[in-house]
Design a protein around this nucleic acid. Structure first.
Length: 376
DNA sequence: GAGGCGTGGAG
DNA sequence: TCTCCAAGCCT
């Protein structure tokens, strides 16, 4: 890898910040340096693209304008505000941290990266981003952009998928951060990483810091950063149970221990709990249904008789799982009480008011299409 | 330290 | 349809 002299570092800062002053993006959370604004935006931006975040950020600030308002928000309101943004534990951690700030810190924010990390959901990157942008601490904010940009500029060979590599990059970047404008420096690196120095289809030849780009100079841009790949998502087959009664549809709230915690969906039964999940033969489905009828009647006190909706399973892919949901429909003429089951009957018109994950929207869309087709 | 945790866009 | 990627954190 390359190393830079003091003169090179100063020239780099100047080139970077001159470009940033002219071409830096005007984003809603850049209108001031309020730590609440910086913090909420940084949490939303974790693993999420800027264009996706903007409308969520604006709605969130309208709904929860202060850290106190966020601390007092109801969980359904919070989850509804986060619906569709993904990584839903971020929302819960955000409110937990808001309550820490109000209750434990009396709304006096920690001002250093080290102390900010004591708040829920704030790790090394987010702590450094807030500390530098809101409070002017001279620390590098080492995110995916910083990894990629400096790996290319300096031809750093360390595998950025390895957690220990963060320390190396932090030590390399620390003396490069502009001590006069650390927050702008970090944001400029991010803008660079999302424009000229993107992961794919980058344009290093026109970058404002191309003179400092060792990988471009040597024609090895595509070799950086070094990053080992993650395994493919695992197939997880489910039955999705569309059960409707005079009082509405049966929806269940996912538990704290499950993914999509707190969000509502049709009951989902892992096919693994029934028959061979790999088998798709009609006979297997029939056997499954018999089991399902029995179990549903016994466990949940609901006399449901399920019929396959047909068509391809609803498919939804997460980072680590690929769900294939076979939809089954049961129509009940009376509404059974839900004595032992953690769900509720929801009138069709009221479902959209609940916090719903994407896979539930897909299942509802499929069911609506089928009903529309049946009317033809 | 490896794996869990969502969604949408680009090619 | 499939693959990879996008301002990570938690356990």
């Amino acid at each position: 890898m390359e190393t830079w002299s003091t003169a090179t570092i100063q020239a780099f800062r100047h080139a970077l910040l001159t470009w940033y002053d002219q071409e830096g993006r005007d984003l809603p959370w850049r209108h001031d340096h309020d730590p609440y604004h910086v913090w909420v935006s940084e949490i939303m931006l974790q693993q999420t693209q800027v264009n996706t975040v903007i409308p969520y950020y604006q709605r969130f600030m309208a709904a929860f304008p202060t850290v106190t308002a966020l601390a007092r928000a109801s969980e359904p309101d919070l989850l509804k505000a986060w619906q569709g943004l993904g990584y839903y534990s971020r929302a819960r951690n955000l409110q937990r941290a808001a309550r820490q700030i109000v209750d434990d810190y009396h709304e006096e924010w920690p001002r250093t990266a080290a102390s900010l990390q004591d708040l829920s959901g704030i790790g090394p990157y987010t702590a450094s981003a807030i500390a530098s942008i809101a409070f002017g601490q001279v620390v590098p904010a080492v995110d995916g952009n910083a990894f990629r940009v400096f790996a290319r500029l300096l031809k750093i060979d360390a595998d950025i998928a390895q957690p220990k590599t963060r320390q190396l990059f932090t030590e390399i970047i620390q003396p490069i951060v502009d001590p006069q404008r650390p927050g702008d420096f970090n944001q400029a690196i991010m803008d660079l990483g999302s424009s000229y120095m993107t992961a794919q289809k980058s344009d290093p030849a026109h970058s404002p810091v191309r003179a400092f780009d060792a990988s471009w100079r040597t024609g090895t841009v595509d070799q950086y950063p070094v990053k080992t790949k993650k395994p493919r998502p695992k197939l997880v087959p489910y039955y999705g149970l569309i059960i409707h009664a005079p009082a509405g549809y049966l929806l269940v709230q996912r538990t704290r221990q499950q993914m999509l915690a707190g969000y509502w969906s049709y009951p989902l039964v892992p096919q693994a709990e029934l028959q061979d999940p790999e088998a798709t033969a009609p006979a297997t489905l029939t056997a499954d249904l018999a089991t399902l009828h029995q179990r549903w009647a016994a466990d949940y006190q609901i006399p449901a008789t399920f019929a396959p909706l047909g068509g391809a399973p609803v498919s939804h892919t997460y980072t680590h799982q690929r769900w294939q949901v076979k939809l089954l429909v049961a129509t009940l003429t009376k509404t059974p009480p839900l004595t032992f089951y953690p769900g509720k009957w929801v009138p069709a018109a009221e479902i959209a008011a609940l916090p719903l994950p994407k896979v539930q929207e897909k299942m509802m869309t499929r069911w609506a299409q089928r009903q529309a087709a049946a009317k033809q």
